[in-house]
Design a protein around this nucleic acid. Structure first.
Lengths: 143, 143
DNA sequence: GTATTTGCAAAAGCTTTGCTGCAAC
DNA sequence: GTTGCAGCAAAGCTTTTGCAAATAC
């Protein structure tokens, strides 16, 4: 289920909640769940609600959310040079499939992910806190 | 088996092979197999053999090797900001375990990786060309 | 008043590009 | 001569930092 743009923000406004820059960043992140966004697009989205927000605020809010383990940082196999992508941490671990032709991003799940994690913990005595699985290639339609 | 620094280079020189900048980059990459290197360290290594080499040459050579599928590009969960890490494509797919405390990087293998790839191809009709699995956390000694 | 949040400008890094000269064939 | 390789300087982008004004408590 994909959220419509701005629908959380409207709901909050109607209840008298003031939208601060930080809140706007958080809302925009939540509303783009399922499609990781880079900082530039995130800023654009945020500015639709609060036009004067600066990129500094976007980066600082992301940093805050990362520290609390609420946001994942990806780079989708360097799809866009140095840019990073962000999304709310999903309930269940995902594989990001990145189509190198059309740019589609598929978020896939698999029980093997959890097994792989346990495997690593057992075999190497490693305590896993965060993990990221990205695969590049060609999606069904681009072959 | 970890190669000693410069041993390939010396072997080639002894056989009368001239070490060009490109070759020096390739050799340094091969010699640091098992420990992904960023462009800055790679340049330092290369300069031990050929002091006048420029970073442009390092980046261009990496780009060439990437195009031919000989080098993998990682970022180890943004361990070092915007920097990317490079290593020769391993024969068998690996998981990179990144210790957030001591910085250790463990290259782990698992048959689940190959299964995961086939899973994705089957379930999503996706043709996988490259893949990357990184996990952050604490290594055995840092817990 | 004190602490936090914010915007603006500037800096810091990593990577890429333009261009010119050099070497190989 | 033509082609590709290499070095240097400059630019391009993303992200971070310093600082002062504004805001919240």
């Amino acid at each position: 289920m994909v959220a419509r743009t701005g629908h959380l923000e409207r709901a909050l406004r109607e209840r008298g909640v003031r939208i601060t820059p930080q809140r706007a960043v958080l809302l925009s992140l939540i509303e783009s769940a399922g499609r990781p966004v880079d900082a530039r697009s995130l800023l654009e989205r945020v500015r639709r609600a609060l036009p004067s927000v600066d990129k500094t605020t976007v980066y600082r809010t992301i940093a805050l959310l990362k520290e609390h383990g609420l946001v994942d940082e990806l780079d989708l196999l360097h799809r866009n040079g140095l840019a990073h992508y962000y999304e709310p941490v999903p309930e269940q671990q995902e594989v990001h499939l990145v189509c190198e032709r059309c740019g589609a991003i598929i978020e896939a799940r698999s029980p093997l992910l959890e097994r792989l994690r346990r495997d690593m913990e057992r075999a190497h005595g490693f305590r896993v806190k965060a993990s990221r699985v990205e695969m590049g290639g060609h999606c069904r339609r681009c072959q």
